[in-house]
Design a protein around this nucleic acid. Structure first.
Lengths: 183, 183
DNA sequence: ATCTTGATATATCGGTTCGATATATTGATG
DNA sequence: CATCAATATATCGAACCGATATATCAAGAT
């Protein structure tokens, strides 16, 4: 799934600047399943324009730098729908946390505990954001995605809370005869 | 999280070729949280060797091309542990399926149904693989990861089975007065 | 016999993307 | 004053992707 398709998706809903596209992919409803950097968005928009799939107009605004607002063309809409109608690729997922978990015995208990706490921290924050966004959600498709995500994150949190001790024990090492030093 | 760290992780467990590292990242225990392409693995190994973090020896073998077996150095081990002890980055996740879901009303019911079926297909397959791998799993950390993944995938499947109708309805459009054509 | 396929292996290409950074403008804060 | 944040555009070098190429052999199909 490419940044190209994401840009077309966002522009298909409404005109946007590169900055707004980036903002939506990190803070808006797209954030749950995509993220794209400036380094990819701007070159992608330039290519889409060169191919006639989007047009751009410049808007001056007082107090801020000028904006370049991108609009999708009919050819762009067609390309977007075509892209969506292809067989759907699998999700991609990478988890530095799980790499730490796999190597827990080498990392040590402190770092593992920190990693678990940090993870729970951002998962809880995410859950809160999802619940907030859902409260103001006008659109059934977005609601579906938020439900999906919310229940997954809630599950994630529950698993971690129930099982963190296992991981911490691996990180600490086999049961020792000596009492643990006071921390 | 980089392919670099993944290569060091795999080599920290045991010597491996580029081909084996790729195999482990797509089929072995690392597959649940990382995937890396040949296009990144080979250049990464070359860089790691140039930096003295791994060494390579060539092994002839009859009936097959010669292998280049990589081993981690003590400096490589230290770099690996250091990398793991950094603050852990968040998971990254991309889902073409969820983009299709968000645009369901434009994609149409056939494509949405296909996407759901395909997704359920590979999730079920994944679940089966996890259960198999867990049955033969000697290592507690790996068992933790498989439990984590298994329960997430099971949840994913359950959600999709319970809620697919919602998505299909969005894709079909608002309730129509006309009866649906027979398919 | 030949051809195709699959497995084990190494490797690279052009294109895309990342993460960091630069620049510009303004307003708010220390 | 300097710093930070927000709104904006843009680019760099490095990393990575997806596809492909090459090599060797064995097994199966024609």
């Amino acid at each position: 799934m490419s940044v190209r398709t994401l840009c077309l998706a966002i522009l298909n809903f409404e005109d946007a600047t590169g900055y707004e596209i980036r903002k939506q992919s990190t803070e808006g409803k797209y954030r749950y399943f995509f993220d794209a950097s400036y380094g990819s968005i701007y070159p992608t928009l330039a290519r889409l324009e060169a191919e006639g799939l989007v047009t751009v107009r410049e808007e001056a605004q007082s107090g801020k730098p000028a904006r370049k607002v991108y609009s999708i063309t009919p050819a762009g809409r067609a390309a977007f729908i075509a892209a969506l109608s292809e067989p759907v690729a699998r999700d991609t997922f990478r988890s530095p946390f799980l790499l730490v978990a796999m190597c827990a015995d080498q990392v040590g208990p402190g770092a593992v505990r920190n990693a678990i706490d940090a993870r729970l921290g951002y998962l809880r924050e995410e859950l809160g954001l999802m619940e907030t966004m859902q409260g103001e959600c006008p659109n059934e498709a977005t609601r579906f995605i938020l439900d999906y995500g919310r229940t997954c994150v809630a599950h994630d949190i529950a698993f971690l809370e129930s099982n963190r001790a296992r991981l911490e024990e691996i990180a600490t090492g086999p049961t020792k005869d000596l009492p643990q030093a006071a921390e």
